[in-house]
């Protein structure tokens, strides 16, 4: 079966972002960008399904600027077969991205779509669920285990308080949680091979997707800073402070 994986180009998770002085957003110029960590896990899962002989083709897709080609090449180096770039601006809402992905799903007809549970820039945690809604497919969010059994998908999900197991009809949408797998590194020969793999470029308008949105960001500020604390020398002093100064115990 064909597996579609959606990925996103985001600020590298090790970067400590800074808010722009004019409050229009965060400083992204000359900041290291990378594949969103949850998307890496999604690619890894698709590649493992291919290695198990379950997936026949792994197609990776992103919606974003031309620069996101770099992240598509990374996904190809990790084992995806071909890539699709839906070229648009980088600040689209999750709903718009879900609509663009729905158009790609209609075109490609995958049996399984894997996304990360959330992107570490917007922290929205919406796109997979929205794509499932628009496609009318079942969703297995925050997946820590995925198993294809015939025309069903067994998914173990991380929920508040523990784990939940579901059985979904295929085609279905899965979003990955951290513990689904440990993504591999791309080897140099695979990075070279990835350069020759096909990469198709589409646009939202060609897919019939409007990019207007009902939400607008008015400003972006730095969070309130905590006032600097003190270092205590002994446990007794710590308890004294917690009891008499902070009054929390």
């Amino acid at each position: 079966m064909k597996v579609l994986v959606a990925v996103k180009r985001v600020v590298d998770f090790n970067v400590k972002v800074r808010v722009k002085a004019d409050q229009s957003g965060v400083e992204l110029a000359s900041v290291k960008m990378a594949l969103n960590p949850f998307c890496e896990i999604a690619v890894e899962e698709a590649v493992r399904l291919k290695e198990q002989g379950i997936a026949t083709e792994v197609v990776v897709v992103t919606v974003g600027s031309n620069a996101a080609q770099e992240q598509l090449r990374t996904a190809l180096a990790l084992g995806a077969d071909r890539a699709i770039l839906v070229e648009a601006t980088d600040d689209l809402s999750s709903l718009t991205i879900a609509k663009a992905l729905k158009a790609v799903v209609d075109k490609e007809q995958p049996r399984l779509v894997i996304l990360g549970k959330q992107a570490i820039d917007s922290d929205n945690n919406q796109t997979g669920q929205m794509l499932a809604a628009l496609s009318g497919y079942a969703q297995g969010t925050f997946a820590s285990k995925v198993e294809v059994v015939g025309d069903k998908l067994n998914v173990t999900r991380e929920i508040d308080g523990g784990l939940q197991s579901l059985e979904l009809s295929l085609p279905a949408i899965v979003t990955t949680d951290l513990r689904l797998n440990e993504p591999r590194y791309a080897s140099l020969p695979n990075i070279m091979k990835a350069k020759k793999k096909p990469l198709e470029t589409l646009t939202p308008s060609a897919l019939g997707v409007a990019t207007t949105s009902t939400i607008k960001t008015l400003k972006v500020e730095a969070p309130a800073v905590r006032s600097a604390g003190i270092k205590v020398k002994t446990v007794a002093e710590l308890i004294e402070k917690l009891k008499n100064e902070a009054k929390v115990i």
Partner: peptide
């Protein structure tokens, strides 16, 4: 909060 709480966005919805 966005970017793991390193920035706070004020957003308006016209929905």
């Amino acid at each position: 909060p966005i970017y793991a709480g390193n920035a706070i966005a004020t957003v308006q919805s016209s929905a």
